[in-house]
Amino acid sequence: MRHFLQVLLCSVCLFSSFTTFAADKLLSLKNLERQRAHLIQDMLSTRHAPEAKQKRLIQGQRQLIDMERMVIRDERLSQQNEQLVRRAFSDFEMTFLVHASAEKNKQPMQHWLDSVGFSSQAILTAQPGFRK
């Protein structure tokens, strides 16, 4: 009985460490997605004064550049067949927002708006209100 409990305990420990290791393979990509979402939220936010907002955006872009580099260089991701990984690398323009905007000589906000399908003209002519 004692031997059985030891084997059971070892197998539970191995299984839990394996699932933790498997989850860690996507951690860099999940952190990138989270940081990109924070940057877009800061871009669209009206809560901060313009100077404070500009500081937050510059800091967020620097962090996102570093995270994008980490994900691009993460060889563990190329070995994964997860949907998150496939979608991230198939939509380079949105996943690697700061790098893609630099390649097109645009600000990340302008690049994101273009990728989503908004134009400056459409935003300026938009009227607040409810849709009917």
Rank of each mutant, 00 (worst) to 15 (best):
V98D: 00
G60M: 01
L27H: 15
K106F: 11
T20Y: 15
F96E: 05
K55H: 13
I72E: 02
C13K: 02
L27I: 03
R36L: 01
E51W: 05
L44V: 08
R47Y: 11
T20P: 13
M67A: 08
R56V: 00
A37D: 06
C13T: 11
L97E: 03
P50C: 01
Q107F: 15
S28Q: 09
H111I: 13
D91Y: 03
D74F: 02
F89V: 02
S16E: 09
V85W: 07
S28G: 05
I65C: 08
S115C: 11
R73F: 14
R47H: 15
L77I: 02
K53C: 02
R47I: 04
L44K: 09
M43A: 12
R86I: 00
S45H: 04
P108E: 03
R47C: 08
D66M: 12
V71L: 02
S16H: 08
I65Y: 04
C10D: 05
T19F: 15
E82N: 12
W112V: 00
N81Y: 00
K106A: 10
F92S: 08
F89D: 01
V116I: 15
E82L: 04
L97W: 04
R69E: 13
P50S: 05
S115N: 12
S115F: 10
L27V: 04
Q59K: 06
T19N: 14
L77D: 01
L39N: 04
Q54K: 11
R56M: 15
S90P: 05
L26V: 04
E33H: 15
V12M: 09
E103K: 07
R34L: 10
D42P: 05
A37E: 03
T95D: 00
L57D: 05
T20R: 10
G60W: 06
K25H: 06
S11M: 06
T46C: 12
A102T: 09
E51G: 10
Q79G: 08
S115Q: 15
R87K: 15
L84C: 07
F21C: 07
R86E: 01
A37Q: 07
S45C: 00
E93V: 09
D91M: 06
D66T: 13
K106N: 14
R69W: 10
I58Q: 15
F21V: 05
D91T: 07
E75T: 06
A49H: 15
K53P: 01
V98R: 01
M94R: 13
Q107K: 06
M109D: 11
K30R: 15
A102C: 11
V71P: 01
D74E: 10
E68G: 00
S28V: 01
A52H: 07
M109W: 14
P108S: 03
N31W: 06
K55Q: 14
R73T: 12
L113T: 05
I65D: 00
F18W: 07
F89M: 02
L9R: 14
P50Q: 07
A52M: 05
M67E: 02
D66Y: 10
R36E: 04
V116A: 06
K30W: 09
Q41P: 08
M70D: 12
Q35K: 13
R69P: 10
Q61S: 12
R73K: 08
V116R: 14
N105Q: 12
K30Q: 09
S101E: 10
T95V: 01
S28F: 04
M94P: 10
N81D: 00
L27P: 07
D74L: 03
E75C: 03
Q79I: 02
R34C: 06
R87H: 11
V85I: 04
Q83V: 03
E75I: 03
R62A: 13
